[in-house]
Amino acid sequence: MEYLVLIAAAFCAGVLNTIAGGGTFLTFPALVFTGMPPVIANATSTVAVFPGYLGGALGFRQELAGFDRRRLWRLASITLAGGLIGSGLLLLSSNEAFSFVVPFLLLTATLAFLFGDRVRQWAAARARDASTEGALGLFAVALYGGYFNGGLGIMLLALFALWGMSDLNHMNALKSGLSFLLSAISVAVFAVAGMVAWPQAAIMMVAATAGGYAGAPVARALPKPVIRGVIATVGFGMSAIFFWRLVGPG
């Protein structure tokens, strides 16, 4: 029964990630609810959704090729450094400490998703060229993504808008490429540290990939407000549950 829950959660997460993002709202809670310690559940959830980032990066390879190679190497280096440190921080976190911050991380990710368009518009109005401030911003976002993957894509898009980028295809291409690199370093760190529950991760990877493929016709059929409403409901619901677990009895 636990595996059926994980398969269903991963499949729906794949659908959500293809439509608009938010799959972590399903994979991480499902792993926790099956009895997995929160830190291990977070690491396993990162592995479970990892194939989707590779598919996105490959899908945008033409747009990625249009970026200046030196700039790409620079951004990739910053992302890997932030992701490595963020993943390392998760290794040092106890289950109690991580359980305390999880509700706040889920709520932050949900708000970032819900108001992502407004945040990008606000950032675009204050756009500047990528500079030292841009590097620090990317490092901070990568640090967050290495520690907790939820809402990473929305935060990257807002950061790119702040840099002055406006072409959504190029923004999504860069987001997919950097997300893949960040997830790759996180998966490597978690695997070496023995923090991944591989039987669950493997079956969820397959289900998430299938869900990602199935999500394409759903994305074409559903209006955007409905999609946003579903993901926001899931995000706020999961946040409320984890807040209740934090302050409730036991």
Rank of each mutant, 00 (worst) to 15 (best):
R126V: 10
G150Q: 02
A130L: 04
V187W: 12
A140W: 06
P103G: 12
G86N: 09
R128N: 04
A124L: 10
L84C: 06
F160Q: 10
I154M: 14
A76V: 08
L152W: 00
L157M: 09
M155F: 14
G116L: 01
N169W: 01
M171C: 11
L89W: 04
W122F: 15
A140S: 14
Y144C: 12
L91T: 12
V102H: 01
L84I: 07
G116Y: 00
D117W: 01
L106D: 06
S179V: 00
H170A: 11
G164S: 07
A112K: 00
A173R: 04
G151I: 01
G153Q: 01
N95D: 15
L168H: 08
A109Q: 03
I78V: 15
L107T: 13
G116K: 02
A112P: 00
S176N: 13
L143A: 12
G150A: 15
G88H: 04
L162T: 00
G86Q: 10
A124G: 08
L162R: 13
T132L: 07
S131T: 03
A97I: 06
S94R: 07
S183L: 04
N172H: 05
G164V: 11
F113W: 00
A123S: 09
A81R: 10
S166D: 13
A135K: 04
R128G: 09
S166T: 14
T108A: 15
F113P: 02
V187Q: 14
L106H: 02
L107K: 07
S186Q: 07
M171P: 05
G146E: 05
A142F: 03
S166R: 14
G83H: 13
D129H: 10
L168S: 09
S94N: 06
L80G: 06
M155T: 08
E133I: 08
I78T: 14
F190P: 11
L90N: 11
L89I: 12
L182W: 03
L89T: 06
S176W: 00
L111W: 00
R118I: 01
A81I: 13
L168E: 06
T108D: 04
L182T: 03
L91I: 04
A130M: 00
A125M: 09
D117N: 12
F160G: 02
A184V: 07
G88L: 01
S77H: 02
G151C: 03
T132C: 02
L138H: 04
L90S: 11
D117T: 12
S131K: 00
F160P: 02
L157W: 00
G86C: 08
L168Q: 11
V119E: 01
A188F: 14
P103H: 10
F104H: 08
G153L: 02
L106G: 06
F148N: 07
